[in-house]
C-alpha cells in the first residue's frame, strides 16, 4: 500500500518533520507544503536526514516554496516541484494520505 505523507511544519520548529521521516517506507512519497518547504533546502542542519530517505519520492509545493523566497537550485537533489494540480495527482496516485501536523 502506497502512502503520501504531507508535512506542513518547519523541521527546525517542531518534531513533526522528523516524526514523518521516521515513519516512511519505500513505497511512500513525501510532499512538503507550507512551512514544511524549509525541509527541502540543501545545506541545512536537517538536509542529511531528508536525503537519507532512500527510495522515498520527495515533492515540494511550488507556490509555498516561491512565497518563502526559496529558488529551485536550493533544493536537495531529487526533490520535484509540483503545483496544486500536481498535489491532487499525488493524492489520487497513492492509496492513502497521512497529513503530519
Amino acid at each position: 500500500m502506497s502512502m503520501l505523507h504531507t508535512i506542513n511544519k518547519s523541521p527546525f520548529e517542531k518534531t513533526s518533520f522528523e516524526a514523518c521521516l521516521n515513519h516512511v517506507n519505500g513505497d511512500s512519497s513525501i510532499l512538503m507544503i507550507e512551512d514544511g518547504v524549509y525541509g527541502a533546502m540543501k545545506g541545512t542542519a536537517f538536509s542529511e536526514k531528508v536525503a537519507a530517505t532512500n527510495g522515498v519520492a520527495l515533492y515540494i509545493l511550488g507556490p509555498d516554496m516561491q512565497a518563502r523566497g526559496i529558488s529551485e537550485d536550493r533544493l536537495i537533489d531529487g526533490v520535484k516541484v509540483v503545483d496544486y494540480a500536481g498535489f491532487v495527482d499525488l493524492v489520487t496516485e497513492h492509496d492513502k494520505v497521512q497529513a503530519w501536523l
Binding site: S10, F12, E13, D35, Y38, G62, P63, D64, Q66, A67, R68, G69, I70, S71, D83
Partner: peptide, 23 residues
C-alpha cells in the same frame, strides 16, 4: 532568531498562495 530569519529572505513571491506579500 531561529525560524524568524526566514521572515527577511529575499525573492519572495506570494501570488501562488493568495496572500499579501509583506516583505
Amino acid at each position: 532568531v531561529d525560524d524568524g530569519v526566514y521572515q527577511i529572505m529575499k525573492g519572495t513571491k506570494t501570488d501562488g498562495i493568495g496572500m499579501k506579500n509583506f516583505s
